[in-house]
Computed example of a mutant assay.
Amino acid sequence: MSLDATKWAWGVQFPDRKNGSLKPLKRLVLLSLADRAGEDHTCYPSVNRLKEDTTLDRKTVLKIIAELIEDGLIQDTGERKGATKQVKVYRLCGVSGRENKTVPTTEHFNHESPDLNSPNNGTVPTTEQFHCSSETVPTIPPNSPNDGTRNLPKNLPDESKNKKDWLCFKKLREEISLADDSIDPKTILTAKWAEREKRAFEIYNQDKSLCDELMNFHFADWLLNAYRNKYSQETKAGYSKTPTANNPKHLTEKQIATFAQKLAHHPEFSGKYSEPGESFEKLAARIAVKLEDPTQAKKWEPYLKQVGFSGNLKELA
């Protein structure tokens, strides 16, 4: 943890606020933020992390964060962290760090000091001629385990420390399987041409501000199209894929669960089919039941394609 930030958080005096949060709860959240502050007094714990630390509910945590900002104790830097770039980075305002402490200075003794008349008083002063302040400033080595707890690279998961770009093979395999379960993702991901298509995909999207999750989502479609149109054995031999590959029997259970969630968050679809006051979870459950019916799934196929389904459901008599 940051010792300076924690010491500051313990000593902060909270202003009285009508209908505001209890001061002990505000100090609890502030201490949790200070616990994750680095040497620059910034921190970026997620709301879920603050909930776990304080055992408060999400609504209370968000209310206290807003009050701490209004009190001028923390500040939203505008920077965002995390895989989705949605975790806010806060700066603790008013922390007096070691960089602000007074550096010890030297003082000359009174000129009447007998030592000045000593034969030793030449061009090089003796140690007795100077007096150093007795104040000592504690220091912590940069690599000390006490120097921060959450924000330093040593505490990050290996996957985060070793991550070099947006590509996540686990996420990519899932998206390929959901889009077309007739194709083994390993066939595509282990192919020599996949790296070539990755370079082309990155060039195509270099000017677009897409998060890592969307990059993997669209890259799955890119690879599937490349496989079908250029690299599959059927394409090389000059004949089309079998009808069952283009026309899946029905949606699998995994596809139904995934696309039900995506359709529940689709603005146009949810606005058309949701009931007043219905939550996303209840809407997704109703959609999943409907998708089990092949006739209904075929009717919603245009919406399914908008959320990532790339096949063609079989026409029913």
Rank of each mutant, 00 (worst) to 15 (best):
Q233P: 02
P24R: 04
K305C: 01
S118W: 09
N155S: 15
T55V: 15
K161Q: 14
L263A: 02
Q75W: 10
S274R: 13
K170G: 15
S310I: 08
G238K: 06
D57H: 12
F217K: 07
T149M: 11
L224S: 01
A37R: 09
G271E: 13
K290H: 09
A285H: 07
C132P: 01
C43A: 15
S274Q: 12
T106V: 12
L214Y: 05
C43Q: 06
Y204K: 14
R199H: 11
F280G: 11
H41Q: 09
K170A: 14
P145V: 14
S96R: 15
H266M: 10
L73Q: 04
Q129Y: 03
D180H: 10
W300G: 03
C168F: 04
P24W: 02
N216T: 06
E174S: 12
L3G: 13
R91L: 13
C43R: 08
E268N: 10
K262G: 01
A191M: 07
P119K: 11
K314R: 15
E275W: 09
M215C: 02
E174C: 06
K192Q: 12
L189F: 08
L25T: 01
C168R: 05
E107Y: 01
K254Q: 13
L178N: 11
T60G: 05
L156R: 14
N225D: 12
C93Q: 12
P157Y: 02
F259T: 01
Y204H: 14
K272N: 00
R17T: 14
H250G: 07
A285Q: 10
L22E: 14
I176H: 04
R150W: 08
D53G: 03
E195I: 08
K208Y: 04
V12T: 10
G238N: 11
S209A: 08
Y204P: 00
P24H: 03
K85T: 07
S182P: 00
K26H: 01
N225I: 02
Q261T: 13
R196S: 09
A37S: 15
V89L: 09
G20C: 05
I287K: 03
A264H: 02
A191P: 02
P185R: 04
A9M: 10
S270K: 10
A37F: 10
E99Y: 09
I183V: 15
